[in-house]
């Protein structure tokens, strides 16, 4: 059985600088796979390569055994690969209802319908309603997204990716910047994702990583440094050194 997501020798250079170098990563179906590493390790660049925002300089990407290295971003979504962004990328003048409706209708292939009034399909609306409930967005669903509190925007950010009904979901620091009192809502929604959805996520919050991940890859300077179960990674003195090194520099 093929891996949910597999890269072979994936690289990306900017000018002379290598942001991601020779990364061969395998993510198993149904995985809860964390990608950690110090700032500037190339984690977000890797996500951008996987989703097609950036073209790789070298290497290949396979989604469930199918080569997607050169597919356009929206085609990858159609094949079941969705993502969230580290910094919210939402439609500020939409309501959450319109936002989710947009994604659901696009997933069902109705996005190009141009003669029908939006909202006129009931089955689709049940889908939307379910998502709004699950992500606690019902009470704000008619408000402009740009006026929502950050925690709600973060929930919508994740709900929007889930609305694409992905089989592989990439989460780029889902809890980043979320105030403490809203964190449990985000964590609960991530934990409640269906078991058969493969999740690859970047996170700095080690509590979240170790409570949620079943496998961890460590990325340093654009290359895979080590990989293993949470226990193995936690015990690895070299990983500690990498992080301590960063803290020493930061501090």
């Amino acid at each position: 059985m093929p891996f949910a997501l597999e890269t072979v020798g994936l690289s990306r250079h900017f000018g002379g600088i290598s942001a991601v170098g020779d990364v061969s990563l395998r993510v198993e179906t149904g995985a809860r796979h964390a990608l950690i590493g110090p700032n500037g390790a190339g984690k977000t660049t890797l996500i951008n390569l996987l989703t097609g925002v950036l073209d790789p300089s070298a290497g290949t990407i396979q989604l469930e055994g199918r080569d997607i290295t050169h597919l356009a971003p929206h085609r990858r979504v159609g094949l079941g690969l969705a993502r969230t962004f580290q910094i919210n990328q939402l439609f500020g003048d939409f309501t959450p209802l319109e936002t989710i409706g947009l994604a659901v209708s696009e997933r069902l292939g109705h996005g190009g319908d141009w003669l029908r009034v939006a909202g006129s399909r009931l089955g689709l609306n049940q889908d939307i309603a379910g998502l709004l409930e699950k992500f606690h967005l019902v009470d704000v669903m008619h408000e402009r997204v740009s006026t929502l509190p950050y925690g709600k925007q973060r929930l919508l950010e994740i709900a929007l990716a889930v609305a694409c009904r992905p089989r592989v979901l990439l989460l780029d620091e889902p809890a980043a910047g979320v105030p403490e009192e809203d964190r449990h809502e985000i964590l609960a929604s991530v934990a409640a994702l269906p078991e058969d959805v493969t999740v690859l996520f970047i996170e700095h919050d080690m509590d979240l990583v170790f409570s949620f991940a079943r496998r961890i890859s460590v990325l340093v300077n654009g290359s895979l440094f080590t990989e293993g179960s949470p226990e193995e990674v936690a015990r690895d003195p070299r990983v500690k050194a990498v992080y301590l090194g960063e803290e020493a520099v930061d501090g």
Partner: peptide
């Protein structure tokens, strides 16, 4: 509003 996100939810921009 946001072409990057639009393509990330499967819209052929």
């Amino acid at each position: 509003g946001n072409a990057l996100r639009a393509s990330a939810i499967g819209i052929p921009v």
